[in-house]
């Protein structure tokens, strides 16, 4: 972090280089975006939806190409799109593990044992908060209140909430996830895009 001496470094954002080099939205994604744009008086307002589509299209995180593509499709400056995307905590800028465990450690969850759950998960997965297991299965994070405090401790994994988790039953959560291909970052993004569209799909669906 602290690199004091050099005076002409361009910051590296190496990890954000994408795997999908000439990234473009799929025809279906374009159809979705086109329809969502009609919900608003101008294209710019479709920024958050467009980023959600991008997060799904680009495999669960926003590469620089994803930002460029959103900027192009909405006719907005790239710096603006990047500025908006980085403001929100649910857009990713680095690949995450297949299952992103986001443990709520906020007030009530914190008081009913969330930190114990985090420590247990760190132990079981052999990683610290913010890290991903070497097999790419799990990323562990701490999040702010997920507003389901009645069920604390709450863990969000992609599009699924696990409630009433304790350090004693958290193993079951992992087991359940290990066997499933759902609840990934792209599936969360996909769910959100479907929520934005009447009946869950664009009127002019492209096959």
């Amino acid at each position: 972090m602290d690199n004091e001496n050099s005076n002409s470094i361009t910051p590296e954002t190496g990890e954000r280089t994408s795997c999908k080099s000439e990234g473009r939205f799929s025809p279906n994604a374009i159809a979705e975006l086109d329809e969502i744009i009609t919900h608003y008086p101008n294209k710019k307002a479709a920024m958050l939806p467009a980023l959600w589509i991008a997060q799904r299209e680009y495999g669960g995180y926003l590469t620089r190409e994803a930002i460029r593509e959103v900027a192009r499709l909405l006719g907005r400056p790239k710096a603006e799109v990047e500025g908006v995307a980085t403001f929100y905590s649910m857009y990713n800028f680095k690949p995450k593990g297949k299952h992103h465990l986001e443990v709520c450690t906020c007030l009530t969850c914190g008081c009913v044992g969330a930190y114990g759950v985090v420590h247990k998960l760190e132990e079981m997965l052999g990683i610290h908060l913010g890290e991903t297991t070497s097999d790419g299965e799990f990323t562990l994070s701490e999040v702010e209140c997920l507003d389901w405090c009645e069920a604390g401790t709450v863990i969000q994994v992609g599009n699924k909430y696990f409630g009433h988790v304790t350090k004693d039953n958290v193993e079951m959560v992992l087991e359940q996830l290990r066997e499933s291909d759902d609840h990934t970052s792209p599936s969360l993004a996909d769910d959100i895009v479907k929520i934005l569209l009447p009946k869950g799909e664009p009127k002019s669906k492209v096959e």
């Binding site: 361009t10 910051p11 954002t13 954000r16 620089r64 930002i67 900027a71 400056p77 790239k78 710096a79 603006e80 799109v81 990047e82 500025g83 980085t86 403001f87």
Partner: peptide, 21 residues
């Protein structure tokens, strides 16, 4: 009008930047 500079991140992590530096 070039809109080249914007803020990244939020709160105390906020920084001014061009797109992708």
């Amino acid at each position: 009008g070039d809109e080249e500079l914007n803020f990244l991140w939020r709160g105390a992590d906020m920084e001014v930047a061009t797109f992708d530096h």
